[in-house]
């Protein structure tokens, strides 16, 4: 147990875990109605879409890439879903399936530009960030809003099953899927290897470009899924859906200990990152003093920014301390040289 605890504390995610626990304890005491099933449902509903985007952003960042276009793609897919159901009068399952296909194609555009032309992901997705949002606006002429979805569809954004909102279950499924993919399959372990050393992975025989392409296509599909969930929650599809979600997703991933340079990170950490931001921003608004001062939203963003810097700085400091300690130890007793 002692070594388990030690090992746990040595991980950067451990800090975040304690932050999350501290948040929950603090808001339970200081907040109003924080420990209620309604509040848990609120937190889950309000962060499900951003959480899904963060989950698929994680493998991308793990390979050393980034995708700034996911928020815009969410908007484009929402609009296209609206076109399918309202203009082309498709049945809901077919429209949903086709929307996922569009998401995959859009992710494929990113993937092709990044892996075939070997362009930097930051730039490619900066371009598609404008392009996808622009297409959404062009399709709707900016003004068209699709509403009046069927009640069964809207239930997806509203109903609960065993106390948890439906999109929460969807989120858990995706989380398990990504966790298994990244940590338990040889296919997905390649992501970390690629992020750690792309050249090395290539020499080791990994199909580097194909694996990278996969992460962007996956992000496209899940962004389309998030678009459908978003549409069900808001009961409407419009071109501005998902504005700014890309930065919030990246924040959650990086906060969760994934290195922005790739090669380091866990899905569990990403989940902790998503949860700690969601609990923080929701909890603050439930503290009467903050609510009455009228500064809930601003304070939430401010503290998220501060938390991000503290988590990063804390991680680096812990690492440099560890390095110093191990150096001191190695001075005392030089490591035995490894012979094979």
């Amino acid at each position: 147990m002692n070594t388990f605890l030690k090992r746990l504390l040595a991980r950067p995610e451990a800090i975040l875990f304690f932050v999350l626990v501290a948040e929950i304890v603090f808001f339970s005491v200081a907040g109003r109605n924080f420990n209620t099933s309604d509040n848990v449902a609120n937190i889950v509903r309000h962060s499900a879409e951003i959480g899904m985007l963060a989950l698929v952003m994680m493998p991308i960042i793990l390979t050393g890439g980034i995708d700034l276009s996911v928020g815009s793609l969410l908007g484009l897919c929402a609009v296209i879903f609206g076109v399918f159901t309202h203009e082309w009068k498709m049945a809901m399952p077919l429209a949903a399936a086709l929307t996922l296909g569009v998401g995959a194609m859009a992710g494929g555009v990113n993937a092709a530009l990044i892996t075939v032309l070997r362009l930097p992901p930051l730039i490619v997705t900066l371009g598609t960030f404008s392009l996808f949002r622009g297409l959404a606006e062009a399709i709707t002429k900016g003004t068209m809003t699709y509403r009046d979805f069927s009640p069964e569809f809207i239930a997806l954004g509203r109903e609960r099953w065993m106390g948890l909102p439906l999109q929460g279950w969807l989120f858990i499924l995706i989380a398990i899927g990504i966790a298994v993919l990244v940590h338990r399959t040889t296919f997905g372990r390649a992501f970390r290897a690629i992020g750690f050393s792309p050249e090395g992975s290539r020499y080791a025989g990994l199909p580097v470009q194909r694996r990278i392409a996969f992460t962007y296509v996956l992000a496209g599909i899940v962004a389309a899924l998030a678009a459908i969930v978003f549409t069900a929650r808001l009961r409407q599809a419009r071109a501005d859906a998902g504005t700014g979600y890309e930065l919030q997703a990246i924040t959650a991933v990086v906060l969760g200990g994934t290195s922005i340079f790739g090669g380091v990170g866990t899905v569990g950490g990403t989940l902790l990152g998503i949860a700690s931001v969601a609990v923080l921003t929701t909890g603050l608004k439930l503290i009467p003093a903050i609510a009455l001062a009228g500064i809930g939203s601003e304070l939430g963003s401010l503290l998220t920014g501060a938390l991000l810097i503290l988590a990063l700085a804390g991680g680096t400091l812990a690492k440099s301390l560890a390095v110093r300690r191990s150096r001191r130890q190695s001075h005392a007793a030089p490591k035995p040289t490894i012979t094979t």
């Binding site: 530009l113 032309l117 362009l119 730039i123 490619v124 900066l126 371009g127 598609t128 960030f129 404008s130 392009l131 996808f132 949002r133 622009g134 297409l135 606006e137 062009a138 709707t140 002429k141 900016g142």
Partner: peptide, 18 residues
């Protein structure tokens, strides 16, 4: 028309990098 502007802006950036 104005609703094409953002898409064209994105396309120009992409064309430059491509």
């Amino acid at each position: 028309e104005a609703h094409w502007e953002k898409a064209i802006q994105g396309l120009v950036i992409l064309l430059a990098v491509v």
